[in-house]
Design a binder for these strands. Structure first.
Length: 453
RNA sequence: GGCGCGGUAGCCAAGUGGUAAGGCCGAGGUCUGCAAAACCUCUAUGCGUCGGUUCAAUUCCGACCCGCGCCUCCA
């Protein structure tokens, strides 16, 4: 069954098809590594991970080539480096490592190539020179290089912006160097007071400096995937100007279609509004793990909304996800290794293949589980878990360290219970509860867990 | 102002021109000394408001109300 996915350019559902050589080329815009990624960022990466998994199931793991970049030089990374007075590479290394750890915890398959902007300066400079030679870019008085959007008739096709609605902002100081306010930077001339020692030799005729943001994706895609790719994705916020600019750069330089399919996932809202530190609703994966939630529950919660709809994320939804995961684990344990119905969960995959309807897929999944019809086999179930990227082996929550006084209370209660002094046992349970601990009795022993709020 | 998205049970959230998936919570039950877990059962005459089209609308059309995102470097 083909995978159908909304295409942001044509705004319709279109089938995903590999390149003529049978390889599917997939590029997903990655993070800027200057701070911990938040769960809104991870919504996009988890959604893209599901796309990656569906592609592997559809075309074969060896036929999918997935590239996701790391933006390790831009205003924010440099700003952070200046602020902390640490070298840029040190800053970006720190946050790249955390990003990788978070991705692994969320069970995201690593991309086949994860190129960095600083590792591809040469490729970016080459592309800028190509654009200058073709008349699509020009050198500004300060030595920066800008892309001339008037030179590309197709500009605005993706975002449907025909004439730029200019919004007066004081931060548009770069406008002084541009021919047109819509033009965007391909290369930014070095500014010692802002950039510190971050600079490279520029394109021929330009000043030393660093690449503009958009050019890295165009250059790295060309190097690692070629001039035309099969799918390009990112968050909706990248639609304009980032992806619009990528199209302009790549198509003007290469003279051929850049991406045959575009897909943008919507934003995550928290408590009905955008995340921000001042509102106190800004979460990183680490924040949620510290609250006792498992990364797998975070992943499930991020998939509970349709990827092209804003998702209202709440701590309650994490609760729901944690419970739902427990059901899935229980169900998996009850499945026979080889049941009769080897395609029992096909409808779940069908939902995913129909424009990545993750909530619909989860609904179909639980419906099948609840009906208990036939004898679903483990392989079919596991295939669905693979597609969703749900690792059921992961513990529900990290082990908490039990304070010695709690252990002592528990021991006393266990002894009282063994002596059938239930009144004393109940009293001790109350004390434990008051202290925030749950004592789970087993046949031959007990477990202690922090009470869920 | 421009472009775009959405308003479905206490919360989250699918969906279809023919009478509302699913998850969580809650209630009842089975099982357990208690608690927890597991399992079973139940939970929207209703899908922002008002009109229209239709044999039939939550689903199509129009108007209105409300919320949200992007509009130069934010996934």
């Amino acid at each position: 069954m083909p995978i159908r996915l909304h295409d942001s350019l044509t705004r319709e559902l279109r089938e995903l098809r590999p390149s003529p050589d049978g390889v599917f080329r997939f590029y997903n815009c990655g993070p800027t590594v200057y701070a911990p990624a938040h769960i809104g960022n991870f919504r996009t990466f988890v959604v893209n991970d599901v796309i990656r998994r569906l592609l592997e199931l559809e075309f074969g793991a060896d036929k999918v080539r997935h590239v996701r970049n790391l933006t390790d030089v831009d205003d924010r990374t440099i700003g952070q480096s200046q602020k902390e007075k640490r070298p840029l590479a040190e800053i970006t290394k720190t946050w790249t490592e955390l990003f990788h750890a978070d991705c692994a915890a969320l069970n995201c398959l690593p991309p086949h190539v994860e190129p960095t902007a600083t590792g591809h300066i040469r490729e970016q400079v080459d592309m800028i020179e190509c654009l200058m030679e073709k008349g699509n870019a020009y050198r500004a008085p300060d030595g920066s290089v800008y892309f001339k959007i008037a030179s590309f008739p197709g500009y605005g096709a993706l975002s449907r912006i025909k004439e730029r609605e200019l919004k007066v902002t004081t931060s548009a100081f770069d406008a002084d160097h541009k021919d047109d306010l819509g033009d965007f930077a391909l290369w930014k001339a070095h500014k010692p007071e802002e950039d510190g020692d971050v600079q490279w030799p520029g394109p021929s005729g330009a000043a030393a400096g660093r690449p503009g943001w958009h050019i890295e994706c165009s250059a790295m895609i060309k190097k690692h995937l070629g001039e035309t790719i099969d799918l390009h994705t990112g968050g909706v916020d990248l639609l304009f100007p980032h992806h619009e600019n990528e199209i302009a750069q790549s198509q003007c330089c290469n003279g051929t279609i850049f991406a045959r399919h575009w897909y943008h996932s919507e934003h995550l809202l928290v408590d009905g509004t955008t995340m921000s530190k001042s509102k106190g609703n800004y979460y990183t994966l680490g924040d949620l793990v510290a609250k006792g939630y498992s990364p797998m529950a975070v992943r499930l919660a991020l998939l509970m909304g349709h990827p092209r709809k804003q998702l209202n994320f709440t701590l309650d939804s994490l609760h729901a996800a944690e419970s739902a995961l427990a059901s899935l684990r229980a169900h998996r344990a009850s499945l026979a290794a080889a049941g009769a119905a080897h395609d029992a969960f096909a409808s779940v995959l069908a939902m995913l293949q129909d424009d990545l309807n993750t909530p619909g897929a989860l609904g179909a999944l639980f419906t099948i589980i609840n009906r208990k019809e036939g004898e679903p086999d483990a392989a079919s179930f596991d295939r669905v878990m693979f597609a969703l990227g749900l690792d059921l082996h992961q513990p529900a929550a990290p082990k908490a360290t039990v304070p010695t006084e709690i252990t002592a209370l528990a021991e006393k209660r266990w002894a009282a219970k063994q002596a059938k002094d239930f009144a004393a046992a109940d009293g001790l349970r109350k004390e434990l509860t008051a202290a925030g601990w749950a004592m789970l009795d087993g046949k031959d022993g007990y477990k202690l867990e922090p009470l869920k709020k």
